[in-house]
């Protein structure tokens, strides 16, 4: 694999795991615009443990996941007291706080950043991305996944049906923190360098866009969204700087034409092998593709 191709695969894997981190909360209806903050915690935890405490990657990565999961758990309590746009603002503020803190902390290298001692190759990233994807598909196919999606639609009815709404939301924020931390730790160990400026608000916006444009109804959404957003700018490289303009127009068009995201539950149901042949005993009710 050429350096260019392996670079894209690495970014794709990191973006995919990162997208799933945001997806697990978005699927339950919580928008997290502080993704970069959680990723930064994972990246800096791994960088510091690797460079200052001289630990190998197979120790730093689990510890980095633990650190960002813990932060996700703690932060979920104040954040879940807010709703809608206020939650978006609260998580955004959290992301800004983390990058501001790292930028001013001499322990973590401040604006200079940190060199990460232990290197991991693109193969490890691919394995992590595949495992994460399977994990999220598994989760979404479970009764917990059903509860997550029903919370997204109607919290009151979910509660009456016996779902512990608050517990599920806290669990998803914690899992989201863990996955964002994993993506950050992989970033740190693969690119061997972290700097606070990288984990900025634009990164948080991008990853939320991956998820919203991919679709929050099924685990396919972030997969399609991150493939689309990672590969499209590369394919458009021939257009020079104009590619960002085209990219922006594409995003606006997607929002207008398909606000529910590229992949919806109804689309997956229509493409599912179970529905390739109409059930003979049942009147074939249309499986519509309304959002």
């Amino acid at each position: 694999m050429s350096g260019y191709a392996s670079g894209i695969v690495a970014i794709l894997c990191i973006n995919l795991i990162f997208a799933y981190a945001i997806f697990v909360t978005a699927a339950a209806g919580q928008l997290n615009l502080g993704g970069a903050g959680f990723q930064a915690i994972g990246a800096y935890a791994a960088a510091w443990l690797s460079s200052s405490a001289h630990m190998p990657a197979n120790v730093t990565i689990p510890l980095a996941i633990l650190a960002s999961a813990l932060v996700g758990f703690v932060i979920s309590f104040p954040v879940l007291r807010t709703r809608g746009v206020y939650m978006v603002l609260a998580t955004f503020a959290f992301g800004q706080f983390v990058s501001g803190f790292l930028l001013r902390s001499p322990t973590f290298g401040g604006a200079i950043g940190m060199v990460v001692a232990d290197y991991i190759g693109v193969g490890a990233l691919v394995i992590c991305a595949v495992v994460t994807t399977l994990l999220v598909f598994f989760l979404m196919a479970s009764r917990l996944g059903l509860a997550i999606r029903s919370i997204h639609d109607d919290e009151l009815v979910s509660t009456i049906m016996g779902v512990n709404v608050r517990a599920v939301q806290v669990a998803m924020f914690t899992l989201g923190g863990a996955l964002a931390g994993l993506s950050g730790a992989l970033y740190a160990h693969h690119f061997s360098f972290v700097e606070a400026q990288y984990f900025n608000s634009l990164l948080s916006i991008y990853v939320l866009l991956f998820v919203l444009i991919g679709g929050t109804q099924t685990a396919w959404g972030p997969l399609v969204g991150s493939l689309f957003f990672t590969l499209l700018p590369e394919l458009m490289r021939v257009g020079g700087s104009w590619r960002y303009v085209v990219f922006g127009v594409v995003i606006v068009l997607m929002m207008v034409l398909r606000p529910q995201g590229i992949v919806t539950r109804a689309l997956v149901a229509r493409l599912s092998p179970r529905n390739w042949w109409p059930a003979s005993s049942r009147a074939a009710t249309r499986v519509s593709d309304a959002g």
């Binding site: 499986v287 519509s288 309304a290």
Partner: peptide
């Protein structure tokens, strides 16, 4: 008598 995978809004 509807398809189990049908969208409820339909």
């Amino acid at each position: 008598d509807v398809h189990p995978d049908a969208e409820v809004s339909s």
